[in-house]
C-alpha cells in the first residue's frame, strides 16, 4: 500500500537530512506505529505520502503509484484516498460536528443526500452519536479528535495517517481514540500513526517502525515502544529479548 525506496528528504542542505535513505513497505490493512523522538522525521514521512513535500531522492509509492509521477492536478485524487488526523484536531470552530464532517464531503462534490446518509454512520463509528449539533468548543479534547477522525475517514480512504493524534489527550482518552483507530483498521483501512506515547504503543502491540535522526533503526511486528537494548542502527526482535528486558520496557505492566 505504501512503499518507500531509499527515500531521503533534505530541507536544509546545511543540516542533516530529515529522512535518510529510508526503505520500508507497509501492507494493505496494516496498522503501523511510527515512533521516535521529536525531530526524528515522523511528520516528514507522513508528508511525503501525501505529496505535501517532494523526496530529495528515492521514490515513494502509494497504492502502487510513484507519487513523484502524479501531476499536480491529480494530487487531489491521491489525497482523497488518504485520511489525515493531527495532534491539534484542526476542526472548523464555527461549524458544528455534523458540518465539520460534512465539509470533507461537500468540497469534493458529494451530493446532499449522500452526505445526510453517510455522516451519521461515520459519527456512530467514532462514538459520537447524538452529538451532531454540538460546536467544537462544547466538546472534550477526545471528542474533538473523534470528529477529526470522522472527517478523515468519511470519504472512505484506503489509508489513514495520524500524526500524534493523542499528543494533546490524557491517557484514558487516548486509549479511547486508539479503540476508534483500531476499529477503522479492522474495517480494512491501512493506518500509519506517528507517536511518542509509549503506553499506547505497548498496549496495542502492533508493528513499530522507529526513526532516529531520519534513519529507520528498528522495524518490528507486534512490538513495544522501545526495544530492550539501546539499538544503534540495527534491530532486535522482541522474541529475542530477555524477561528482565521485557519487564523493564513495559514498566512492569505485563
Amino acid at each position: 500500500m505504501i512503499r518507500f525506496e531509499n527515500v531521503t528528504k533534505v530541507y536544509d542542505p546545511n543540516a542533516r537530512p530529515a529522512l535518510d535513505d529510508v526503505s520500508l513497505e507497509i501492507e494493505r490493512g496494516e496498522f503501523t506505529f511510527l515512533v521516535g523522538a521529536s525531530g526524528s522525521g515522523k511528520s516528514t514521512f507522513l508528508r511525503l505520502i501525501l505529496k505535501e513535500d517532494r523526496a530529495t531522492s528515492g521514490s515513494v509509492y502509494v497504492a502502487g503509484q510513484n507519487v513523484a509521477n502524479i501531476s499536480s492536478w491529480r494530487v487531489p485524487r491521491l489525497r482523497r484516498g488518504i485520511g489525515v488526523v493531527f495532534q491539534d484536531f484542526r476542526l472548523l470552530p464555527q461549524k458544528n460536528v455534523f458540518a465539520n464532517v460534512a465539509f470533507a464531503m461537500q468540497v469534493i462534490g458529494k451530493s446532499r443526500s449522500i452526505i445526510r446518509e453517510t455522516v451519521p454512520e461515520v459519527l456512530k463509528t467514532v462514538g459520537l452519536e447524538g452529538k451532531e449539533k454540538r460546536m467544537p468548543h462544547e466538546l472534550s479534547g477526545g471528542e474533538q479528535q473523534r470528529v477529526a477522525i470522522a472527517r478523515a475517514v468519511v470519504n472512505r480512504p484506503g489509508i489513514l495517517l495520524a500524526d500524534e493524534p493523542t499528543g494533546n489527550l490524557d491517557p484514558i482518552t487516548s486509549m479511547g481514540i486508539m479503540g476508534v483507530l483500531d476499529k477503522i483498521n479492522q474495517n480494512g483501512t491501512t493506518v500509519v500513526m506517528a507517536t511518542h506515547d509509549d503506553d499506547i504503543v505497548n498496549e496495542m502491540r502492533k508493528r513499530v517502525v522507529e526513526l532516529r535522526n531520519g534513519v529507520v533503526v528498528r522495524d518490528e511486528a507486534k512490538a513495544l515502544y522501545t526495544s530492550m537494548i539501546p539499538v544503534v542502527g540495527e534491530s532486535r526482535l522482541l522474541k529475542d529479548a530477555s524477561d528482565e528486558e521485557l519487564d523493564r520496557a513495559t514498566g512492569g505492566q505485563q
Binding site: 487531489p76 485520511g83 484542526r90 472548523l92 468540497v107 469534493i108 470519504n155
Partner: peptide, 14 residues
C-alpha cells in the same frame, strides 16, 4: 478551511 480542503482532496478550482 483551505488546509482541510487540500487534505481531503478538494480540487484546485474548488
Amino acid at each position: 478551511e483551505t488546509g482541510i480542503m487540500r487534505l481531503v482532496g478538494a480540487s484546485k478550482t474548488v
